[in-house]
Every structure is written in structure tokens, then in C-alpha cells.
């Protein structure tokens, strides 16, 4: 394994550096992605009990054999939703990681250069 060092202002692993500025930039992008998907997940998931409480056509009217829309969604369709959501999230998160890794290197290099310029 390559050299690893840590100071208050930056962390270095081999030739790759994290500064607080680069990490904050990466964090904001990751937060935007995770919380956007999180909002979709919780809205859909909590909509199910909400409809179970307040929408009779959802919980009491059979639509296929004994299946109500409620039963069908909770026992089968919800999983399609979970798989689709997690698959698209992972793809986006990996793409974001790739994009942010270049951005992090650039921000870190610029920050360190500015700091060294200031010191000299």
C-alpha cells in the first residue's frame, strides 16, 4: 500500500488528496443524490399505509381474484419498486463517484497550491 498521511487540512493516500474543500463539494453532491432518492422511497413507502387508512378502493376492492391493489402492491409490486430504485441509485452513485474523483483531485490540488502560495 502507498503512503498515507493526514494533517488537519488534508488527507493523502498515494498521489490522491482530500482537502476539506474537496470533501465538502463531494459531500454536497452525494447528499443531493441520496436525499432525492430517499424522498422518493419514503413518499412511496408511507403512501401505502396512508392509502390503507383512507382510500377504500385501495384496500377493500378486489382487482384480480382476491388481490386488492393494496395486497398486490405490498406482496409483489413493491419489490419491483425497490429493485428499480436501488439499481438506478447505484448506477448514479458510481457515476457520481467517478465524476467527483476528478473534481476532488482538482479542488485539492488548487487548495493546496493556494495554501503553499500563501505560506511562501
Amino acid at each position: 500500500m502507498g503512503e498515507t498521511s493526514a494533517r488537519a487540512t488534508h488527507v493523502q493516500h498515494g498521489s490522491h488528496i482530500d482537502t476539506i474543500e474537496s470533501v465538502d463539494a463531494v459531500f454536497r453532491e452525494q447528499r443531493k443524490l441520496s436525499f432525492a432518492y430517499g424522498a422518493v422511497f419514503f413518499v412511496v413507502t408511507l403512501a401505502i399505509p396512508a392509502m390503507s387508512v383512507w382510500w377504500k378502493s385501495w384496500y377493500a376492492v378486489p382487482i384480480w381474484g382476491g388481490f386488492t391493489a393494496n395486497y398486490l402492491f405490498v406482496s409483489l409490486l413493491y419489490y419491483l419498486f425497490l429493485w428499480g430504485l436501488s439499481w438506478t441509485y447505484i448506477k448514479k452513485a458510481d457515476a457520481l463517484d467517478e465524476r467527483l474523483s476528478h473534481m476532488a483531485d482538482e479542488i485539492a490540488a488548487a487548495t493546496l497550491a493556494a495554501a503553499e502560495g500563501g505560506e511562501s
Binding site: 498515507t4 493523502q12 493516500h13 470533501v23 476532488a104
Partner: peptide, 10 residues
Amino acid sequence: MRIHGTASER
């Protein structure tokens, strides 16, 4: 930086 930093992974 430890939680959100990616230098180690890169």
C-alpha cells in the same frame, strides 16, 4: 474527510 473523503478509495 474520513467519512466522505474518497482519496483512499481512489
